[in-house]
Amino acid sequence: MEEQQQTVCPWCHTEIVWDEELGPERHCPHCGNELSGYRTLQLGLDAELEDEVDDLEEEDEDPDWEDNESFKKQRDAALGDLSELRQYSRERLALDETMERILDDQLEAPECPSCREYMLEVGSSHVTGESFTSRTPAAMTIPLLPTPFDVVMYVCPSCFHTENRLSAQDQERFVRSLAKAAEEGQ
């Protein structure tokens, strides 16, 4: 009788029996995942921090290490203060919740060109003829964007990139003026 080799799928933990003549299976017949391509993901501390923690553990020969204050200080310095991590996590969750509520109220939510986060509307500016000189191209008889108009300002909450856009009413007015110039040019 031929000897059969057995493999356990790392994904679904099913035992796979294969024949030596046919060779090993490349994919699990039960879950369809690769058997030879099982990949691992390591989460945790950076390599340097892990080395520091390992060094601290090796140096500590005191059986009452919990009572050793110098060990606690060195360990906390290597690992960082975990209370800051919890506090940041709570603050980050509150920040994300607030940002979601703000974004729900916005008419537009442009994507930041730098980091791809949604930008928050922070206000608008009313531009008048005193602070803006409108350009009239040679192909048109009227200015591209006559004053007054409103500009809405957005700020990215992640990288603080700012962006300005015409208000919705002035966008419509801009498109109408371009359409009017196209009709006059024909």
Rank of each mutant, 00 (worst) to 15 (best):
149 F>P: 05
155 V>C: 06
152 V>Q: 03
155 V>Q: 11
140 M>A: 15
161 H>M: 03
145 L>I: 14
162 T>F: 06
163 E>T: 00
163 E>N: 04
148 P>T: 12
146 P>D: 09
147 T>L: 07
168 A>N: 12
159 C>E: 10
146 P>E: 11
137 P>L: 07
145 L>W: 08
150 D>G: 03
164 N>M: 05
172 E>N: 09
139 A>M: 13
144 L>P: 00
175 V>M: 09
162 T>G: 06
160 F>C: 03
173 R>C: 00
142 I>Y: 09
171 Q>D: 12
146 P>G: 10
140 M>W: 13
165 R>L: 13
145 L>R: 09
161 H>E: 08
140 M>C: 13
146 P>L: 08
172 E>L: 06
161 H>P: 00
146 P>T: 14
148 P>I: 03
147 T>V: 15
157 P>S: 08
139 A>V: 14
147 T>S: 14
164 N>A: 13
160 F>Y: 09
167 S>D: 14
159 C>L: 03
161 H>W: 03
164 N>Y: 08
142 I>L: 13
167 S>M: 06
141 T>L: 12
156 C>Y: 03
170 D>G: 00
157 P>I: 05
161 H>Y: 06
174 F>W: 09
144 L>E: 15
166 L>G: 03
165 R>N: 05
156 C>M: 01
153 M>A: 05
175 V>F: 14
140 M>E: 15
138 A>D: 15
140 M>T: 04
153 M>P: 00
137 P>S: 11
155 V>L: 10
154 Y>I: 01
143 P>V: 12
160 F>M: 09
154 Y>N: 02
153 M>R: 02
147 T>K: 02
171 Q>M: 11
136 T>P: 04
158 S>I: 01
162 T>H: 10
175 V>L: 05
143 P>S: 07
145 L>H: 06
170 D>Q: 07
163 E>D: 08
167 S>Y: 02
153 M>D: 13
153 M>E: 12
167 S>A: 11
173 R>Y: 04
140 M>N: 13
148 P>M: 12
175 V>P: 01
142 I>Q: 13
172 E>C: 02
174 F>L: 15
141 T>N: 15
